[in-house]
């Protein structure tokens, strides 16, 4: 589904992505973990087209992704969600989702089609809200949602694009335990239809969802394996869990 080969990106002296190769297989949930500043979001941004890599290739669904401008990637089935919630604040929850449907149906430039008159779009949007547990908030303005609900809306907008591959950048960030659990269940229910690349700090979430895990440290992938194997991988323990221990000592 997604095949990254020898990808590199530097900002001045800092190498944020260091010769990364990574394959996400169709129908799997692939988790990308690593300490803060490892370059996870930078990698996601290159896949979604927000940043251009210095070298390397990304192939998605058989096509050269780097040749595709960022705004065309969602149309090809590659959709990302953001670590920092980014919705259309004055739109209702329903309209946020409807806007995505409009874009994916190539109806951006419809000057004479009244936005509120498209019943089919409205029904589709509401179906997605139903799935993501936001049905009761359809008429709420996005800016008035609670934080967890905004995160849910973020996922709903991503799903509205009917993605083949979903790039999730810390979907659980700032969520409470209950919210986090229901979102985990939601993602779990999508695993049959949607391939996912998941960046997440919450290890419970990662280990309960992921089919495969890659570990990114200082811009390098140091291991890619099944969850159980990652748990016992020495390099990972040293490089990744090790830094956690260091953090703990530092805090103590």
């Amino acid at each position: 589904m997604l095949d990254i080969q020898n990808l590199s990106k530097s900002f001045g002296a800092l190498t944020a992505t260091d010769n990364v190769s990574l394959t996400v297989k169709q129908g799997t949930i692939h988790a990308l973990i690593g300490p803060n500043g490892a370059g996870k979001t930078t990698l996601i941004s290159q896949i979604s087209g927000y940043l251009t890599p210095d070298s390397g290739t990304i192939t998605f669904d058989g096509q050269d992704l780097l040749a595709l401008p960022a705004h065309k990637r969602p149309h090809a089935g590659l959709v990302r969600s953001f670590q920092i919630t980014s919705v259309i604040p004055e739109f209702t929850v329903r309209d946020n989702v409807a806007l995505v449907l409009q874009s994916l149906n190539n109806q951006v430039f419809r000057i004479f089609a009244k936005a509120s008159a498209d019943r089919e779009e409205r029904a589709k949007a509401e179906a997605i809200l139903e799935r993501t547990g936001l049905a009761t908030e359809a008429d709420t303005r996005a800016q008035n949602l609670a934080h967890g609900q905004k995160r849910q809306l973020e996922i709903a907008m991503a799903l509205a694009a009917d993605p083949k591959l979903l790039l999730l950048d810390e979907p659980m960030a700032g969520m409470g335990v209950d919210e986090s659990r229901s979102l985990t269940d939601l993602l779990d229910s999508l695993r049959d239809t949607t391939t996912m690349l998941l960046v997440e700090h919450d290890m419970d979430v990662v280990f309960s969802l992921a089919d495969e895990i890659s570990v990114l440290v200082y811009g390098k992938i140091i291991a890619t394996d099944a969850p159980e194997a990652i748990r016992t991988n020495r390099d990972v323990q040293e490089a990744y869990l090790g830094t956690h221990e260091l953090h703990d000592e530092g805090a103590a």
Partner: peptide, 15 residues
């Protein structure tokens, strides 16, 4: 209206 409120988000929804 969406561009006015959150232009940066547009690219990621394909606009």
């Amino acid at each position: 209206a969406a561009i006015r409120q959150n232009e940066d988000r547009m690219t990621s929804i394909g606009i």
